[in-house]
Each structure stands twice: as C-alpha cells, then as structure tokens.
Amino acid sequence: MPQLSLHSPLGPITLSEEDGKIISLDWGWGRDQTETPLLCQAREWLDNWFDDPESAGSFPLPLDPYGTAYQKKIWAALQEIPVGETTTYGELAEKIGGSPQSVGQAVGRNPIPILIPCHRVVGASGLGGYSGDGGVDDKAWLLRLEGAKFPHHS
C-alpha cells in the first residue's frame, strides 16, 4: 500500500492509498514513502489547505474510507459541511438519522481526518473529542485556521 508523509502545522501526517483512492490519513511519519501521482496531488492540496483553507476548497480526489454503511453515510455528510462552519453531533444525527452518540462514534472513527472534515462537528456545549495527536487542541487549531466560530476551548 503506497504511503506518503508530509510535514504539517500539526506535525507529521501520512496519507495511504489503495486502488487509486485515499484510504487513510494518520498522525506521524509513515515507514514507507511512495510518491504516486494521487499521493503527490493530495500532499499538494493539503499544503495549500494549511495555507488557506477557503481557497483550497473541498478535497477533490477520490476517497475510500473503510467503515460500515452507517459510518460512510456520516462521513459523506461531513464532507458537505463548508469550510469555516460547524454543526453539532445532534444536528448531524437529526439530518442523517441515529443518535448523537452514534454520530459521535462514527465521527471518532473517521480514518481520513482533515480530508473528511470531522473537526467541523462539535458538541452542543463544547468541542467534543478529536483523534489527532494533540486531541481537542488540534481540533480547536483547525477550526481557528478555518475561521470557524465554536464553543470555548481553553
């Protein structure tokens, strides 16, 4: 499985590709480094996104996260949340079906964070969790980068 790592403001991250689609974004530097055309395009998009999320737009390359049908439904809905905006777990549950807890579990299992923008989902009275190495601090940083309004985080 081809992997390509890059330096980001949140530390090193690694993209993985399978069958011509991005299947994961992991925190840390990957062991294997393969510069496929898709991974190079994804790296370029991420570099541009970290510089200016608004002008980068939504991720234009094919994604194929491993997950259940319900998780994939949630992850597809995350991709519809515009840059700089947030929604709550409860609002997403109303839109998709299910409970805020089941939405939170699916969001927490997102294997392609940032590209599938799970950081844009917040709790009704707080940020909720985040899978990045820096946890909720990373989530708050990403939301600030996008200029989003979100619940207070110290």
Rank of each mutant, 00 (worst) to 15 (best):
P2F: 06
L4G: 03
S5H: 05
S8M: 10
P9Q: 08
G11V: 05
I13N: 00
L15N: 02
E17V: 09
E17D: 07
G20V: 09
D26C: 00
D26Y: 00
G28M: 05
G28W: 08
W29I: 10
G30F: 03
R31K: 11
L38G: 04
L39A: 04
L46I: 11
D47T: 14
W49M: 08
W49S: 05
D51W: 00
D52V: 04
S55V: 13
A56V: 00
G57V: 01
P62C: 08
T68Y: 01
A69R: 14
Y70T: 07
Q71I: 00
I74H: 11
A76H: 12
E80R: 15
E80N: 15
I81A: 05
P82A: 14
V83Q: 13
V83W: 11
T87K: 15
T88D: 00
T88K: 06
T88Y: 03
Y89F: 15
L92M: 15
G97Y: 03
S99N: 09
P100C: 13
N110Y: 02
N110A: 03
I112H: 10
I114A: 05
I114T: 05
I116Q: 07
P117Y: 09
C118N: 15
H119F: 11
H119A: 01
R120M: 06
R120D: 01
V122S: 01
V122N: 01
S125H: 12
L127R: 02
L127D: 01
G129T: 10
Y130N: 10
S131K: 11
D133E: 14
V136D: 02
D138G: 04
W141P: 00
L143Q: 04
E146D: 04
G147H: 06
K149E: 14
P151N: 04
H152N: 13
S154N: 07
